[in-house]
Design a protein around this nucleic acid. Structure first.
Lengths: 365, 365
DNA sequence: AATTGTAAGCGCTTACAATT
DNA sequence: AATTGTAAGCGCTTACAATT
């Protein structure tokens, strides 16, 4: 209950001004040319009185809080939970504390969090923006505080951004399925205007096109965030009832995969016997599945590290102010059981109709 | 980039003192008897100038930050991640912001986080304490700030605490297995001095005793946090090699369950055919397992809610200062596939040797 | 020249005084 | 009596002045 000791207490104890104490305890005894004698006395007194600086006072005075506001889209998703954890770790190493918030994919929550964080005087923002918040972000940038978008971004909005090569890696994943002999490859994704999700779709389409594979519209399954499970079920049942059996699927996120795998289970479809499966993101469920899932690892550590580093550089003004930075990280395709090519499949006729990319022009044109 | 507007700016704009502005914007116009005219003008100016209060300044002046420091033991465990999320939600509803930290089961990190949070002038603490930090907590209490222990606690330390009835629910879970016809029931737990974990063991033992079931020491498997997976493997292989086949198991946490299920899979043991499984906590893996796991739901929402509520009451001094509160919540046993009693098992002789509790005295004594 | 102190001010709140 | 203003102070930092 004892009153916390302040700079003033130490100053009185040693018999010196608060200025000296401040210099010494902030390691500025050299610049301020404090005598060795006083340095010792002050340090000793600080320890004796168990001094802990009041960072609130410091923040007010210096106009910086050493605080970063992080807004993720859904903290109950392990992807964002991991991201938050890593951001916190890196930020702490650099002496920053992180204020967390989850917008839960809601515009109004995002707006609310921004206001809370501004009131709390965070020095900078790291945001996984929600659909429809482009203007919020633009306005936020106008405060002059660094804003780094992570994972998600807006193609039309110049901004600091850290993300993966969504389109390329999706393409690579689908190509992997095709080269494994799959032809009727479905995509389960979100119906959204979020660019990173649509880039994944674009990569899927590009791969299918490259190999001359027609895509039945029903194979492109796009669902809303709300009411996910029944929607997924419905779309997947329709797709799996098609005459041409679905033999491969790309899940655009881990949540979709978990919902989708459930349907696959219920239908008694075997992985990878009947269908090859690849998903974005990671999940303990993927590891534990009887056929551990082939997945696209976003390198969460790297995303977090780059975002924090960028923020830190901005705060130190090491980057030209009016020039935004985009960092694109290479995601990795981790191939495991769920997309394993079974020998029988490789050898039977099911891939005979596959058009090799080299031949496509002639065949199609 | 425009300088943020302060109370002073509004005061100047309206032509009034900052005192009036402060009263009005804090809803104290009645107490301060500000004229209706000025109230209107000030409100209007605040909106016009897009005023956002500087909570840092407010905190410094009022000596309270409306901030709660939350220290969890391991944020990568979904149990704690969920807990953190819920704490944040409830705290926000009451106008508090939450500073998070994960001690990762390390004493020094816990100590470090406490110092960081104290420097940041949090108003109160909610802590899942790590083994060996009893003195840290005691010292923290002496600052006079509310400290609420959640999930974990120290039997010897008077403190505000919110937790579940670990012993009783463990007992109930094991009883459930026994009544399902299981006799050789193993426990996979941690080797630790944490009371809540040992209470779970105690409940297990109590149930076994109640039904007169002898417990082979090898069935009580206790492992360290470090190097979890190989340790679990080793202990479980030993237990499952015993002559009397293990036919039931209680996992003391979700992490242990995930490691343990892996071994069960590798051994080709069928759930619940060969073995009934119950685990503490929840996990997506439990839901997705071919035999969804019977589990002990801690009621994370309720834990979080009670912890935040207790903190809030303390801060409002609604509770007698020198009297600590312990809230024990009832956990629930959610029975699913993994402990389903198969008819054949119920009917065959394997439970014939089971001593009914009512008969125990005679049979044993 | 070497060392230390003074005092303002960051943006608020609030007891109290002052004005009409 | 009704309304408004003054000014101190929360705990720091730091430009500058002052002392030896």
């Amino acid at each position: 209950m004892a009153k916390k000791t302040s700079l003033k207490d130490i100053a009185q104890y040693v018999g010196v001004s608060t200025a000296l104490v401040s210099y010494v305890l902030n390691g500025k005894e050299k610049q301020a040319r404090v005598s060795q004698q006083k340095v010792l006395e002050i340090r000793q007194a600080a320890k004796l009185l168990d001094y802990q600086p009041n960072l609130i006072a410091k923040s007010l005075r210096k106009g910086q809080t050493k605080t970063i506001g992080l807004i993720v889209a859904d903290i109950s998703n392990p992807f964002f939970a991991d991201l938050a954890k890593k951001v916190e770790e890196f930020a702490r190493e650099l002496g920053y504390i992180v204020l967390f918030g989850s917008s839960d994919e809601q515009e109004y929550k995002s707006s609310y969090l921004i206001d809370v964080f501004l009131s709390r005087q965070v020095d900078a923002f790291i945001v996984c923006p929600v659909s429809g918040t482009e203007n919020q972000i633009k306005k936020l940038q106008q405060t002059g505080k660094p804003v780094v978008l992570v994972d998600r971004y807006f193609p039309g909005l110049p901004a600091d951004s850290v993300r993966i090569n969504n389109r390329e890696i999706a393409m690579r994943a689908v190509e992997h399925l095709i080269l494994g002999g799959r032809r009727n490859i479905a995509l389960l994704s979100y119906q959204t205007d979020l660019a990173h999700i649509n880039q994944r779709k674009s990569g899927y389409l590009k791969a299918m096109e490259k190999y001359g594979l027609a895509v039945n519209p029903e194979l492109i399954m796009e669902v809303n965030y709300a009411n996910l499970v029944p929607k997924v079920e419905q779309k997947m049942l329709a797709a799996f009832n098609l005459q041409d059996k679905v033999d491969g699927i790309l899940f655009a996120t881990n949540s979709l995969a978990i919902a989708g795998l459930r349907v696959i289970e219920n239908l008694g479809i075997k992985v990878p016997g009947d269908i090859s499966v690849v998903s974005f993101d990671q999940s303990e469920v993927f590891d534990f599945y009887y056929a551990p899932l082939t997945y696209i690892a976003q390198g969460i550590q790297s995303l977090a590290e780059n975002a924090v580093l960028l923020v830190s550089k901005r705060l130190k003004e090491q980057i030209h102010a009016r020039q935004y930075m985009t960092t694109i990280l290479d995601a990795k395709l981790i191939i495991r059981e769920s997309s394993k090519i079974e020998t029988s499949l490789q050898l039977n006729g099911s891939i005979s109709g596959l058009i090799q990319p080299e031949l496509r022009a002639e065949k199609i044109g």
